[in-house]
Design a protein around this nucleic acid. Structure first.
Lengths: 108, 108
DNA sequence: GCATCATATGACTAATAAATCACATGACCA
DNA sequence: TGGTCATGTGATTTATTAGTCATATGATGC
């Protein structure tokens, strides 16, 4: 296939992979409640700063969160236009299928 | 935290992880175009049957696809109610951010 | 310009997930 | 009931990803 479709596929993979991770999931769920800077996220989660930064970068790369500098702090917030409704929609799906998923996993 | 919230988190992780993979992404995009059985998917993609089955199982576990038996064949189809609109919404996000994502990746 | 606080980055190791291989099951028909 | 076609499953190997450590950058105030 062309390079373009390869890039395209890679971007999708990166996008989904961004939330296929316990820590990033926790971070984005905190940000859903409102804008936060790195150190606030560290405090709220107990995570290491470097790990939080790495993960925020990934979320930012994928267009899931935006960042703005305020003095020495950098405030992160979820993309309200696309990601907020998307996450809500996924919550809807999960309301229906979460039990099933958990159940199937436990079988193994 | 409780077991319940742990399960919850695990289900989300599994859900997102399901599409964070080149092959499953290709499979679900084929299914978006219509119901297909395993061997048809193999033909269209050139993938091994066992790999396709493993991946379909994962998609099915997450409620992304449904399966129905027809003779010796098993036909898989995307969940029209929740997953179809979800994928369309993500396509919308990607239309805006795909270039950014690809770009950021290439820097490294 | 230097100290310090907040955050980012790169390289490496550790953890996780995916593909493959060998085999099992299940439907159908002779 | 035995053969074969379609698909599923478990175990192992291989590949990918994430977290950590050490260090860099960047803003602020003295």
């Amino acid at each position: 296939m062309t390079n373009k479709s390869h890039d395209h596929e890679k971007a999708y993979r990166l996008f989904f992979g961004s939330l296929a991770n316990k820590n990033r999931l926790e971070i984005i769920n905190i940000l859903r409640k409102g804008k936060k800077c790195v150190s606030e996220i560290c405090q709220e989660t107990g995570f290491e700063q470097t790990m939080v930064s790495h993960n925020l970068k990934r979320l930012e790369t994928c267009g899931m969160v935006f960042v703005e500098q305020e003095g020495k702090h950098r405030y992160y917030s979820v993309n309200q236009e696309t990601i907020k409704p998307l996450l809500e929609m996924i919550d809807g799906h999960m309301k229906k299928y979460c039990c099933k998923i958990v159940g199937e996993c436990k079988k193994r």
